[in-house]
């Protein structure tokens, strides 16, 4: 809620305060817009203009060649420029990304919210403390070392071994499930998010216990309390966590890359972007050969412009998601505003 009261907003002092806040915020806005402007402008520049000095925001010879490359118009299959990422049309990857992000959000947000609510308000202090560390403890381990065991686990769930073991004294193997090459292999590991758990818990902690007690006295079941009282209040934080779940699923490349490598029809956009960006932004061993696709792109003069075009494409759904979830956030502001 605004700190400067609505009624006194016209007083000179309040005006000064508000005015300086506005100036500060607008400067910040300009700083933020610069990278975006750079990204969009670079995506329309020809390669030779990218590093021009002095830097100019409006391309001298605007071109859509970068977007053309992305739209699969310059690489018909079967040419020497055989870039495997373009084997499928761009919309396949976009669709996959959307499906993956939607599944992740639909599974992750409720599971995480319920757990956070239980830890914050329902569990006895001792188990709450224990569960808290159980839930966030894995954040403290860098994910890089879990890549191999996680893949083994998902490749024949629930056996985290090299191969599925035999049932003792028989030649039969234990039953197992393989998630390799399926969406589930990507979605299941993201079914619980420790980060969103922290957010939810932080939020539920700010809610007074009286609200729940009152509901209980009214005879509401725990589920009803959660549904009817907590969730409406939690609307802003649900919007935020959904947004984070969406963007992290949207941007994640290593999970999908390892799980779906053999099934290109299911690649999300992030994998394609990663494959295209890595030779621009990562350290190649200076000796030895490189990806034939990278070689092809280098020869055809593709550079930052194509990368930025990709970044623009990548950013659009995130931007839209932001606008949608902002409305949810704003609703929270409006409801609370009416109350005050």
């Amino acid at each position: 809620m605004p700190i400067v009261p609505q009624v006194g907003r016209r007083s000179p002092r309040a005006r000064l305060t508000l005015g300086s806040i506005a100036v500060f915020l607008w400067i910040g806005v300009l700083l933020h817009l610069f990278p975006v402007a750079w990204m969009i402008s670079a995506s329309f520049k020809p390669t030779r203009e990218i590093f021009d000095q002095p830097f100019n925001l409006i391309p001298k010879e605007p071109t859509t060649a970068s977007y053309g490359l992305l739209a699969n118009t310059v690489t018909p299959p079967g040419t020497d420029l055989n870039i495997d990422v373009f084997r499928y049309p761009l919309y396949t990857y976009l669709l996959n990304s959307l499906v993956l992000a939607a599944l992740t959000v639909l599974i992750q947000v409720p599971i995480t919210a319920m757990a956070a609510y239980a830890v914050s308000k329902l569990h006895a202090p001792r188990s709450a403390k224990l569960l808290f560390f159980f839930f966030i403890g894995t954040l403290m381990i860098p994910g890089q070392i879990a890549i191999v065991p996680r893949f083994l686990l998902l490749s024949h769930f629930p056996w985290p071994t090299r191969a599925v073991p035999d049932i003792p004294f028989t030649d039969l193997m234990f039953p197992s499930l393989s998630f390799v090459g399926t969406y589930w292999g990507v979605v299941l590991p993201a079914a619980f998010s420790a980060f969103n758990f922290l957010l939810f818990k932080g939020f539920f902690d700010t809610l007074p216990v009286d609200l729940i007690e009152a509901a209980r006295i009214d005879g509401a079941s725990e589920l009803t309390t959660l549904r009817k009282i907590m969730l409406p209040l939690a609307r802003p934080v649900i919007a935020v966590t959904t947004y984070f779940a969406f963007t992290s699923a949207w941007n994640d490349f290593l999970g999908p890359w390892i799980m779906l490598m053999t099934n290109q029809a299911k690649w999300p956009l992030s994998v394609v972007i990663y494959k295209l960006q890595f030779f621009l932004t990562s350290w190649q061993p200076s000796q030895g050969s490189m990806d034939p696709a990278a070689q092809a792109l280098l020869s055809s003069g593709v550079g930052y412009n194509a990368l930025m075009a990709l970044a623009v494409v990548e950013s659009i759904p995130m931007f839209l998601a932001f606008v949608i979830f902002r409305e949810q956030l704003m609703k929270g502001i409006q409801i609370a505003g009416l109350k005050g």
Binding site: G137, P149, R150, P160, L188, P189, A191, F192, F197, L226
Partner: peptide, 16 residues
Amino acid sequence: FSAPAILCQFFFGWFP
């Protein structure tokens, strides 16, 4: 309420 999260966290979080 915590069971699904515990299961997920056990298999995909702690196990690896």
